[in-house]
Design a protein around this nucleic acid. Sequence first.
DNA 1: TCTGAAAGAGTTTAGCA
DNA 2: TGCTAAACTCTTTCAGA
Lengths: 155, 155
Amino acid sequence: MADQLIDETDREILELLREDARRTLGDIGARVTLSTAAVKRRIDRMQENGVIVGYTVQIDHAKLGWGIEAFTELRFTGTTKVGEIVRTTTRMPEAQAVFTIAGDPDALVWLRVRDMGHLQRTIDEIRRHHQVTGTKTLMVLDSWTRGQQWPLDGD
Amino acid sequence: MADQLIDETDREILELLREDARRTLGDIGARVTLSTAAVKRRIDRMQENGVIVGYTVQIDHAKLGWGIEAFTELRFTGTTKVGEIVRTTTRMPEAQAVFTIAGDPDALVWLRVRDMGHLQRTIDEIRRHHQVTGTKTLMVLDSWTRGQQWPLDGD
DNA sequence: TCTGAAAGAGTTTAGCA
DNA sequence: TGCTAAACTCTTTCAGA
């Protein structure tokens, strides 16, 4: 039985799409030695599988003036509904990601903001909306994320 | 003087590409009331600008068996070269992102692994390669990142 | 599950407002 | 900047192996 959701060729295709999601099927096919039709079938299957969730553009936020990144650790009262925090936080444009944590802290929020004043207002807003008993904010000096080399500001 | 790198229409185009980077130029054009040629020119410009860094596929790693996420806080000795940590860590397939931090801890590594044994080995490897004076690992219960709704496991 | 071919879409370039 | 139009490329489907 094929108990694997994807095979080695699918993995290669995913890697190529991770590097550049706008590659054409023909280009991918040439690299994995497959016809465009075969590549299409595999990608379609991975989308139906849910292995491929979607495709997105990678943006240099610093160029748009949102040059500051931070992590805020949140601690809640015992009665706080964690799902509620996630829901309200994810509506803030400053939130890049929200992680609920087992143990201490209770959650970690990755923020991106324009300046320090903006950071302060953002943290205040998170505190205002929830029964947060404490926050600790870590300022990010530099970041790297897989599949996206943070540009080295060649301006 | 046009001191803004992008205008409101560019912003709309970015938002549409963030939702689905494989949208066609014609589809984007219809949504922002522009011809496909005009949309193309704007996207080309944003790529040359460096505002658009690239395009990538969003993968459901849990479906591929890498279902565990964690953050590891790292503390180094005073003599540790931070750039070195980033370089070696980013080579590990388990590392999703690496953040260097001002203050304490010195760095935050976002890891994705298959199981707890794998997590342990990964953390051991990070410790082995560097003059790490201490680590603290936060287990992620649930995560959300912008532009990628973590699938609600409809299996 | 693959390939190859044909038809339909989408992209890209060029010329002009 | 924008538009339209034409040439070109890519995607998608289908028949056959």
